[in-house]
Amino acid sequence: MDDIRYAERVVSAAEVKIAASRVQVFYGLNHALKDVDVEILGKTVTAFIGPSGCGKSTFLRCLNRMNDTIPGCRIEGRITLDGHDIYDPRVDPVQLRAKVGMVFQKPNPFPKSIYDNVAYGPRIHGLARSKAEIDEIVETALRRAALWEEVKDRLAAPGTGLSGGQQQRLCIARAIATSPEVLLMDEPCSALDPIATAQIEELIDELRTQFSVVIVTHSMQQAARVSQRTAFFHLGRLVEYGETGQIFTNPHDPRTESYISGRIG
């Protein structure tokens, strides 16, 4: 595991952004997630790793209530954002998702122009007073997503015409255009080639200055490269959670060690 390049471990103000305690998720009769306790810190990249089907994506989707859209899904326990319970009946998931944005496994640009893709969020949330402001938001988001230089001349072209890596950066731009506080990424690089993956990883590291990023990944190397904190999930349970360096070099739990050394998973 010596070839793994570790991200800088400068965890600034360790303020807790999202806190989850005793979270259970059921799909119908299937108990998919058991007793998960996690505290996600602000301005930090947190990686969820684990074998497929371990519940890491399920947990990620709990954090902005995307599981609400799946019929038959039931969630117990408590998840707070800045101390507010996001499953409180008074909370509107629509408002929550504006604060907790999400990027998906497969790039899913809308069949609209690049501009309209990015402007969609600000428009529905009413974040701009004028066309000029939207233009500005779009440009900023695209610049932050490191896509501006490539698409500035063809903002009216359909987003579906971009390459896979560009599409995924477009989706990131679309997510950050609503200025969320947390950005959830569900295996954002699994459909991309290595070069596009490297670009996205670089981008994630930059995004850390503004957002709290939570990334689900299949690749331990990627988790080691981009994250400051890592959580290991196995069979619907959170096995171990801590500093990335500690998880990869000195795991406390034997299951974590087995997974990292490639014996299970």
Binding site: Q95, R97, G101, M102, P111, Y120, C171, R174
Partner: peptide, 10 residues
Amino acid sequence: LRDGSYGLGA
């Protein structure tokens, strides 16, 4: 596409 839109808070 639906997920993408919900994920943005639509």
